[in-house]
Design a protein around this nucleic acid. Structure first.
Lengths: 233, 233
DNA sequence: CGGCATCCGGGAAGATACTG
DNA sequence: CAGTATCTTCCCGGATGCCG
């Protein structure tokens, strides 16, 4: 019983470690050995704006099952892409946080996204997490269209807030308080995506109460035009 | 029997089309829906320098089984990333060729490779296909180190030849005849990789007959130093 | 409640053999 | 040579339950 339990656990651990490898020196193949399993890259995507708890990840990745999430987190920790941390005493919980090298996966997400956005099969009306949406701004930002713009755009999505800064033809974003935002979008990620990528007029979304815009409304309108999708292949 | 066979085939086809989707508007998630299955990206990698036949792909992807290769080729054609073409009459064979959009996956391979090359678990001594090696030159090329260099480097690997052109701080490559090459490397991909990435002296590799260098030997030496690996994370 | 471990059903991947 | 058929193995996803 006790012994059996331990043995079983050993085996389970081993089966996690025993990765079906491509046995290929190509670094891209190695990348697939590391993060090619189902959900792995999306788990990293959800952590791009900072640490999250197990149940946050489950909520933001509808469809992933608890055991698969456990396996992916173990594997990502094992390869050095994330670290599991205990939160300070009051909260007896854990968070998962990308390592500096783990954060560099952002470049992969960007290139993959720009490639797949040209797919005729891509359906941008599907559900979308807050992290995906904010990340897509960094990926699809068009510096030419933002010429001369210097602004701080806030987002309130669920109980998270993000601040997107546009200055000097750059666009960066962080999960943080909205102090000093020139305008704030509040609503579900899909509603904001409808405005930015779906061409839905802000007015209509606001009328339908799918979205609220607090602050400089003209700036909000301009913001929605800064992220052109690539043409279909 | 006949009917049963057809029914089974129908079901098999259906199971190929029925993709387990992430149901996520994020374009990176869509990319995984398209090419996230095992082997898919490596099949595309092998086609980066032009069309290949089914059995070429099998030979260059040791470990892939025939039925999986069939499924991946069907799926890649279905999404518009490659086209299956009949060769002109004498050869009663088929080839698989990436579409223009399919070729754009090169950017994904590059970014993935640069990320994974920083993994402490990466083992560059594993087997390597010719396409992987030549592609890695485009990925890892350091323009700073090639300053002022203008050269045509040939490679003879198995029965394929590649020409790598370095000029104006750029590095491009194609599978083509070696006309006008300043120097030619001949040998297995792993031997060339040992020289470029493993720091093995050309002299030693040549003495071991793992590699032959025809032409400007000093240029060959310089070439091997143009592709620094990123530091480990 | 958060973080797993366990069991189960279905389906994808792998190996082998076989066919046109 | 270019796949197809079949069998086995293993991964994924869902449900349940344990335990701090």
């Amino acid at each position: 019983m006790r012994l059996e339990k331990i043995t079983k656990k050993r085996l389970a651990e081993k089966s996690i470690l025993s990765v079906r490898s491509y046995d290929d020196a190509c670094a891209a193949a190695h990348a697939l050995d590391l993060i090619g399993e189902r959900w792995a890259l999306l788990v990293m995507r959800e952590l791009m704006f900072g640490p999250k708890r197990f149940s946050d990840l489950r909520a933001d990745l509808p469809g992933i099952s608890a055991n698969v999430l456990t396996q992916r987190l173990e594997r990502l920790e094992e390869i050095g892409a994330l670290k599991r941390r205990k939160l300070p005493p009051p909260a007896a919980s854990h968070v998962y946080e990308l390592t500096p090298w783990g954060y560099e996966i952002e470049s992969v997400l960007g290139v993959l996204g720009r490639w797949a956005a040209r797919s005729p099969l891509h359906d941008p009306t599907l559900p979308l997490s807050a992290a995906s949406l904010i990340l897509s701004f960094k990926t699809m930002f068009d510096a030419r269209r933002a010429k001369g713009l210097n602004a701080r755009i806030g987002f309130r999505i669920g109980d998270e807030t993000f601040l997107v800064r546009i200055h000097g033809g750059k666009c960066d974003a962080a999960r943080q308080a909205l102090d000093g935002a020139d305008v704030v979008f509040a609503g579900k990620a899909t509603a904001i995506a409808a405005a930015v990528y779906g061409g839905a007029p802000l007015k209509a979304l606001i009328a339908k109460k799918a979205l609220a815009v607090e602050g400089d409304r003209r700036l909000a309108e301009r913001f929605t035009g800064l992220f052109p999708l690539p043409e279909k292949a």
